[in-house]
Simulated scan of single mutants.
Amino acid sequence: MPTTRPSAPAPRQTLDAMGVTPLEERAYRLLLRHDGLPPAEIARRLDLTPRRAAAVLRALGERGMVSHTPDRPPRYFAAPPDVAVEALIAASQRDEERRQQRARAAIATLGAAGVGAVVRDERLVEILGPSATAQLFVHMHRTVREELLSLTRRPMLISNIAEPDHLLFDALSRGVRCRALIDSDLLSMPGWTEHMRDNAARGEECRIAASLPFKLVIADRRMAIIPLDLERPDGPVLLVRPSSLLDALCEIFDMLWRAATPYTVAHDEDAGTRDALLSLLTSGLNDKAIQLELGISHRTLARRISGLMKELGAATRCQLGFLAAQRSAVR
């Protein structure tokens, strides 16, 4: 008597508890195995109509599980599993916070009806964990209206320094003034000079500080976040709301900004212009980094530095840096 071979079990769904549908998880798993697929290929491999595939990809993008290139057609990439799960956890926490806010609003309404007064929660500072910090960091960039300030130093949490900073670029495109103070120690980090140049080309104002005491992000001078333990990238972060403490942090940023060296990008073909070289010399870059930035040889750089020393009356490289910084401050 012939026997029927049991069919292979369907892949176990592991993300359904966090609101991800089986079809969305299939698409995510596909992109984990095959980077850079266009929508048509994703639809073909999942046996979906283009419209249905677009809806699935849109849902995954809103959950922070996939990203895509600006090409037409775009190519899709899966976020690393740990990043995707963190994004799902953050979304779940947001839903829970909304439920709690509705509950508090109901309590406040009942309290006002009973006693005519409600005491509001006006916390000026708060300690945040990694998930809440990541959520707030994105929120600050998406809601900032006028000004975004940052102090940037090691350790860096950027997994790929070559990845475009889309949150920053979106803020700049809305007309937000973005100012970044960079610790000079980062200039030796591979790819960091290119990262600064790309951001500056998009409109970010950047200056180099000899040393920064801590990391900081301030949005519209109404909210700030500060990592409390630089030895622990996933450590606690202090959220500061409008207060004298926030005013002091803004003043510290302004003082550091005034003392820092402007970083400029040369836009013309002859990138080794006098002003560009002066800016790079005062930014703390070493000769090799300056050569790469200007696209010139070691001999050409040495000749131009020698010419600047004669022009400014500097006897040593150290004196040249001091005189160049003075001239930069005057400008």
Rank of each mutant, 00 (worst) to 15 (best):
F169M: 01
A87P: 05
L230A: 06
A90G: 15
A108K: 10
L249G: 01
E126M: 02
Y263D: 03
G321M: 14
A27V: 10
D170A: 07
P236R: 12
R63K: 09
R99Y: 13
V118L: 10
P38F: 12
S306A: 14
M140A: 09
F253E: 01
A200P: 01
L148N: 03
Y76H: 11
D185E: 00
D82A: 15
G191W: 02
I252D: 12
L312C: 11
D165N: 01
T152M: 11
A248D: 06
L212C: 07
D185W: 00
T264Q: 05
H166V: 02
G36P: 01
A289V: 07
H141G: 03
E147A: 05
E86P: 02
D82K: 08
S328Y: 12
L168R: 00
I127G: 04
A276T: 06
K215M: 09
S244Y: 09
P80M: 04
G61A: 15
L23C: 05
P242W: 01
D16Q: 15
L285G: 00
P233I: 10
C250N: 01
E251F: 01
S159E: 09
Y263V: 00
R51S: 15
L46G: 05
L249S: 06
I218R: 04
Q101L: 15
P190F: 00
R304Q: 11
L128Q: 05
A248F: 03
D185C: 04
V115G: 10
H166I: 03
L30A: 09
A324T: 14
A200R: 02
V176K: 08
S159A: 14
D35F: 13
E96N: 12
L181E: 07
F253V: 00
C318E: 10
R33N: 14
D47G: 02
T109L: 12
L308P: 04
I161T: 06
L245G: 04
R258I: 12
D121T: 11
P155W: 05
G116D: 02
L256H: 06
I161K: 03
I127H: 05
L48M: 13
N286F: 08
A87Q: 14
I161Y: 01
P155I: 04
R207T: 11
S131D: 14
S328T: 12
V125L: 03
R258A: 14
F137C: 09
E205I: 05
A59D: 05
R102K: 11
P38I: 12
R331F: 04
D234E: 12
L301T: 01
L278M: 14
R99K: 13
G295H: 01
R5P: 11
A314K: 08
L277K: 03
D254H: 06
A315G: 13
A53C: 15
A10S: 13
S244T: 08
A210T: 13
R98F: 13
L15H: 02
L110R: 15
A271Y: 02
A324H: 10
R221D: 00
L301E: 03
E205Y: 07
P39L: 15
L37G: 06
R52S: 14
G313W: 03
R26I: 02
E293P: 02
G114I: 15
S211H: 04
R102Y: 11
M1P: 07
V176T: 08
P130D: 07
L278N: 11
C206T: 10
A289R: 04
R123F: 01
G203P: 05
